[in-house]
């Protein structure tokens, strides 16, 4: 589904990614774990062309999307739940969800997906006419995921969906991610909560200072001594 070959990217004179290669197969949950500043968010932004790729290539379903405009990548079926939610704070919850479906023309399908999002997160239906900025952190994360789902993505990129959330809310969100995957959405999950991420994912990549250090099946990495000491705090 998604394939990165030796992707190099950065900001200004600073190079953040030094040749990242990774792959996400259709129907998989792949997680990208690593410490703060390892380049996880930059990797997602490179996929969406929010950061300019300097070298290497990115393929989506066999198509080269390196440096393609962000909106074409979204049109091709990629949705991102960005780090820190990035909701449109002054727009209502409903308007935020509508923004997710910006490129979609079929009104019925959009309405059905809105119902589905409200089914997953009933609190959003209750708060749909409030501004997104007035939601609590957990509700905002739900809204951000709901907004991405409104695009009916084939590939969902999630950036730290558990950051700053209460454990209960966190579990609810991870349940939703598993559910979405079961329905056929391919997922690339960036997480600091390595434990939860590794238990959810099929495969994982471990990032360190802009390079991929380790890769393998999630269950194997859960048992890996180095991973245990560095990321699982055991």
């Amino acid at each position: 589904m998604l394939k990165l070959n030796g992707v190099t990217a950065g900001y200004g004179h600073l190079e953040v990614l030094h040749g990242i290669s990774l792959e996400v197969a259709e129907g998989e949950i792949v997680t990208l774990i690593g410490a703060n500043g390892a380049g996880k968010t930059t990797t997602l932004n490179a996929i969406c062309s929010l950061v300019r790729v300097r070298d290497g290539s990115i393929e989506l379903a066999g198509r080269d999307i390196t440096r393609a405009p962000t909106n074409t990548i979204v049109r091709a079926g990629v949705a991102q739940v960005p780090e820190g939610r990035k909701l449109f704070a002054e727009l209502t919850v409903h308007e935020n969800l509508d923004m997710g479906a910006y490129l979609r023309k079929e009104k019925d399908g959009v309405l059905a997906d809105l119902k589905k999002v409200f089914g997953l997160f009933p609190i959003l239906e209750e708060r749909q006419w409030q501004t997104a900025g007035s939601l609590s952190g957990g509700e905002q994360q739900m809204c951000a995921i709901g907004r991405a789902l409104m695009a009916k993505p084939k590939l969902l990129l999630l950036d730290e969906p558990s950051l700053g959330l209460a454990p209960l809310v966190c579990r609810q969100i991870f349940d939703v991610i598993r559910e979405l995957n079961r329905e056929g959405t391919t997922i690339l999950l960036v997480e600091q909560n390595a434990h939860a991420a590794l238990r959810l994912a099929h495969r994982a990549y471990v990032m360190e200072t802009g390079t991929i250090k380790l890769t393998g099946k999630a269950e194997d990495l859960l048992k890996d001594e180095k991973v245990k000491s560095a990321y699982l705090g055991e």
């Binding site: 962000t70 979204v74 449109f88 727009l91 910006y102 907004r147």
Partner: peptide, 21 residues
């Protein structure tokens, strides 16, 4: 109009919605 307000608030995130900024 909604896309305009979204771009005014956050260009990158608006682009992630598929808006041509």
């Amino acid at each position: 109009g909604r896309a305009m307000r979204a771009v005014a608030l956050d260009q990158n995130t608006a682009a992630l919605m598929g808006v041509s900024v």
